[in-house]
Computed example of a mutant assay.
Amino acid sequence: MDALINSLTESELELVRSTERDALAALDEDGLLELHDRVRRARNKYVKLYRRQAGAQVAESGGRGKANPVNQRNRDKAEVIEDALARVSRQLAVMAKASAAALKQERLASARRERNTAPRARRRPAARPPRRPASPPGPGQPRHAQAPGFQPWRGRPPPGRPRRPLRR
């Protein structure tokens, strides 16, 4: 791989060097987008060149297997540029994610400023009168029968009201 990188033209070598980690760290998001576009165009160029020449070579050599070694340099160039594109894409994704998080925080802060988000004051419930102590149950009655609001007919009709028939 190093032999291929050393045999690249000056413009190709400059493009690959601009995708190294130190060079990418110095770029902002717009610079990364521009570099990504340049590297993508170079990758497309070498992939098209490789495919076009490989297709023409198949007719001359009589098969894809025989035509493969003839076009090795173009395939290797396309692979080097593809690796460079992957590095730029990764760094661009990191920058875009950080930018999106910062934008989200900014929008949330703006929304908080524009509307009142102070917690509402809690209303205290009205003071209840003190409960009377329950009178002791009468003889033979359970203790809960004397509780206020006790309805002995709950679950069945009150006295004097007929039971409703079941609906079918």
Score class of each variant (00 low, 15 high):
residue 168 R to P: 02
residue 5 I to F: 06
residue 48 K to P: 02
residue 10 E to D: 14
residue 58 V to C: 04
residue 44 N to Y: 08
residue 9 T to V: 06
residue 105 Q to C: 05
residue 157 P to S: 08
residue 51 R to S: 12
residue 161 R to C: 03
residue 146 Q to R: 12
residue 67 A to D: 05
residue 57 Q to S: 08
residue 158 P to Y: 00
residue 163 R to E: 06
residue 61 S to M: 13
residue 144 H to M: 08
residue 137 P to E: 01
residue 68 N to V: 11
residue 7 S to G: 09
residue 154 R to E: 04
residue 69 P to N: 11
residue 123 R to F: 04
residue 45 K to E: 15
residue 40 R to N: 07
residue 121 A to F: 14
residue 6 N to F: 11
residue 28 D to Y: 06
residue 12 E to Y: 07
residue 136 P to K: 06
residue 8 L to E: 05
residue 9 T to A: 13
residue 8 L to G: 01
residue 126 A to E: 15
residue 140 G to D: 06
residue 133 P to A: 14
residue 1 M to D: 07
residue 133 P to F: 09
residue 28 D to M: 06
residue 115 R to W: 03
residue 133 P to Q: 14
residue 143 R to V: 05
residue 71 N to L: 10
residue 113 R to T: 08
residue 90 R to K: 11
residue 137 P to R: 00
residue 28 D to F: 04
residue 51 R to P: 00
residue 149 G to C: 03
residue 66 K to L: 15
residue 164 R to F: 06
residue 160 G to A: 14
residue 155 G to H: 04
residue 24 L to H: 02
residue 124 R to S: 10
residue 98 A to F: 04
residue 120 R to I: 12
residue 159 P to R: 15
residue 108 L to C: 05
residue 79 E to C: 00
residue 57 Q to C: 11
residue 10 E to H: 04
residue 80 V to G: 00
residue 146 Q to V: 07
residue 109 A to I: 03
residue 82 E to F: 07
residue 61 S to N: 12
residue 86 A to C: 03
residue 49 L to Y: 00
residue 75 R to L: 13
residue 131 R to I: 08
residue 35 L to G: 00
residue 103 L to G: 03
residue 144 H to T: 07
residue 36 H to P: 01
residue 127 A to F: 05
residue 161 R to W: 09
residue 53 Q to V: 12
residue 116 N to W: 02
residue 44 N to K: 14
residue 69 P to T: 02
residue 64 R to L: 14
residue 142 P to L: 13
residue 89 S to V: 02
residue 131 R to W: 08
residue 119 P to F: 07
residue 45 K to C: 07
residue 162 P to W: 02
residue 86 A to S: 10
residue 134 A to G: 10
residue 110 S to A: 15
residue 83 D to M: 08
residue 85 L to F: 02
residue 159 P to S: 13
residue 91 Q to A: 04
residue 101 A to D: 05
residue 47 V to E: 05
residue 90 R to F: 08
residue 143 R to Q: 06
residue 156 R to C: 09
residue 48 K to I: 06
residue 83 D to I: 05
residue 73 R to P: 01
residue 17 R to I: 08
residue 13 L to D: 02
residue 102 A to H: 07
residue 99 S to R: 15
residue 36 H to M: 05
residue 81 I to H: 02
residue 73 R to S: 10
residue 86 A to V: 11
residue 2 D to N: 13
residue 95 M to G: 01
residue 162 P to V: 09
residue 113 R to S: 09
residue 141 Q to R: 14
residue 125 P to F: 08
residue 145 A to G: 13
residue 126 A to C: 06
residue 98 A to R: 11
residue 29 E to K: 05
residue 127 A to V: 15
residue 32 L to M: 11
residue 95 M to K: 11
